[in-house]
């Protein structure tokens, strides 16, 4: 049992007041270790809310530096941070919001060589990446390491997310393999309304906090999609697929795969 300081009781009072969270739930949050992959549009709101909530340790993976074009949506980075590694900029803001939080930074790309080693150190993983190779890599590594994760994707005015726990539907149950390279617009080509990243990222942060506190029902076996143009939200029930190549009854994938990045994505870097 953590001995809360008076300052912590005050800081987390709005959580502690919630019957479903309370002191016990807040303690679970403070003992939690979360990995956020990507300190961008989704990673920014996720990290800010998890920091404010008092997550014990937040790991952040990102190999990029802050670019002026990021600031329209990546709200953890400020104008003065242009040119600074995103992990450094994010760590600075998290520590400013909440000095209780320990931040681990990984100034590198997540790939098949480091994914399992990094992911194994955390209790919950948040996918805030912008490309299919890494989205599939996170899925496969989490299934292999039996780690829960939150998937997130945004495009133009739309977003989608689901939460995976061992045994529930994974990304490959829904989408067997990455779409053909080049067929895929990402934010850098297609554009995205900045606030969409906040809408989806805060859902991912809420799912993370629900996971640790055990509150409510997670978005497992359900894919939530929304269209901000109409503000219609829809939840599609998805089933764990027995023939899934990674989490099915006879998986065909036994190692992590580094898919080719679509050529058009490479040009944008």
């Amino acid at each position: 049992m953590i001995d809360f300081t008076e300052e912590q009781i005050k800081r987390y009072s709005r959580h502690i007041l919630l019957q479903d969270v309370g002191v016990e739930g807040q303690e679970k949050i403070m003992n939690a270790r979360v990995l956020v992959v990507g300190a961008g549009g989704l990673g920014a709101p996720v990290s800010l809310y998890l920091a404010a909530a008092g997550i014990g340790t937040i790991g952040i993976v990102d190999a990029d530096v802050v670019d002026l074009s990021n600031l329209q949506r990546q709200v953890i980075h400020f104008t003065k941070d242009v040119g600074v590694p995103k992990v450094k900029s994010a760590k600075e803001k998290i520590e400013a919001i909440n000095p209780d939080v320990k931040v681990d930074t990984y100034f590198e790309f997540l790939d098949s060589s480091n994914a399992l080693d990094i992911i194994r150190q955390y209790d919950f993983i948040v996918d805030g990446t912008d490309n299919f190779p890494v989205k599939f890599l996170i899925n496969d590594a989490c299934v292999m390491a039996e780690k829960p994760f939150s998937h997130g994707g945004i495009l133009r005015f739309n977003g989608q997310t689901f939460t995976h726990l061992p045994g529930t539907a994974c990304y490959r149950c829904m989408f067997k393999e990455p779409p053909p390279a080049g067929a895929v617009p990402t934010c850098s080509q297609a554009g995205v309304l900045g606030a969409i990243a906040g809408m989806l990222g805060t859902i991912q942060a809420a799912e993370t906090l629900k996971y640790f506190t055990g509150v409510g029902e997670l978005l497992t076996n359900r894919l939530l999609t929304f269209d901000a143009k109409t503000m219609l939200f829809r939840t599609v029930t998805v089933k764990h697929r027995d023939s899934c190549p990674i989490c099915g009854s006879s998986p065909t994938i036994d190692h992590l795969i580094d898919y080719e990045q679509a050529a058009c994505d490479l040009k944008s870097h």
Partner: peptide, 11 residues
């Protein structure tokens, strides 16, 4: 019938 679309953005 449900169509699920790939959505790859996030950064």
């Amino acid at each position: 019938v449900d169509f699920l679309y790939f959505m790859g953005g996030g950064m």
